[in-house]
């Protein structure tokens, strides 16, 4: 579904990604783990067009999307729940979700049943249903995270990019986020998950990539990575 080859990207003259390749199959949950500054967020930003890759290629379902603007990439079905959530604080919860379906409502993606999808999101995230008409800026961090994920899902995406959905959340909420991700996986949503909680991410994922200094240092089925001594030592820690 999503194929990345030799991706080089960064900010100005600083190259963060030194040429990474990865592959996300349809219906798969793939996780990208690594320490802070390894380039996880940069990878997602390059995939969704928030920054322009310097080199390499990105394909979605066979179509080349390398170098397109983020709105064009979104129209191809890549949904990105970005770092820091980035919900629209001055819009209501419902309007944030409606914005998630912007491409469907304006004819650049198949419309489907937006109303039914809204209802589905409120089912999936009951807390959002309670706050339907509240401004997103007044939500708690956990609720904003739910909203960011739900908003991305409103695209009916071919692939969903999730950037550190657990960041800054209380342990109980982190659990909730991961159980939501499991449910999405069960519903066959194709996902690329960037996470700092490597153990939890590998627990739910089918496949994993370990990013180190802008390069893929290891990859393999999540089960295998979880038991890989080197990965264990570097990212999972003794406590996990």
């Amino acid at each position: 579904m999503l194929t990345v080859e030799n991706l080089v990207a960064g900010y100005g003259k600083v190259r963060v990604l030194q040429g990474i390749s990865l592959d996300v199959q349809q219906g798969q949950l793939v996780t990208l783990i690594g320490s802070n500054g390894a380039g996880k967020t940069t990878t997602l930003r390059a995939l969704s067009g928030m920054i322009k890759p310097d080199f390499g290629s990105i394909r979605i379902g066979g179509a080349d999307i390398t170098g397109l603007s983020s709105h064009e990439i979104t129209r191809k079905g890549v949904a990105h729940s970005p770092e820091g959530r980035r919900v629209f604080p001055v819009l209501s919860v419902e309007d944030n979700l409606v914005m998630g379906a912007f491409t469907r409502l304006t004819g650049s993606r198949p419309k489907g049943d937006v109303k039914a999808d809204l209802a589905r999101m409120f089912d999936l995230f009951p807390r959002l249903a309670e706050r339907r008409l509240q401004l997103a800026g007044t939500l708690s961090g956990g609720e904003q995270q739910m909203l960011a994920m739900a908003r991305a899902l409103m695209l009916n995406p071919e692939v969903l990019l999730l950037d550190e959905p657990s960041m800054g959340l209380a342990p109980k909420l982190v659990e909730e986020v991961f159980s939501t991700i499991s449910r999405l996986k069960a519903a066959k949503v194709t996902m690329l998950l960037v996470e700092q909680f490597a153990a939890a991410a590998l627990e739910v994922a089918d496949y994993g990539y370990v990013l180190e200094n802008g390069r893929i240092a290891a990859s393999g089925p999540a089960e295998r990575l979880k038991n890989d001594p080197a990965v264990k030592a570097a990212y999972l820690g003794a406590a996990h």
Binding site: M50, R86, F88, V90, F102, L155
Partner: peptide, 20 residues
Amino acid sequence: KAVVATAADIGAAGLMGVNT
């Protein structure tokens, strides 16, 4: 709404598919 979203966060509006 796309205008309001763009005013609030132009990058996130782009991610919604809005040609900002």
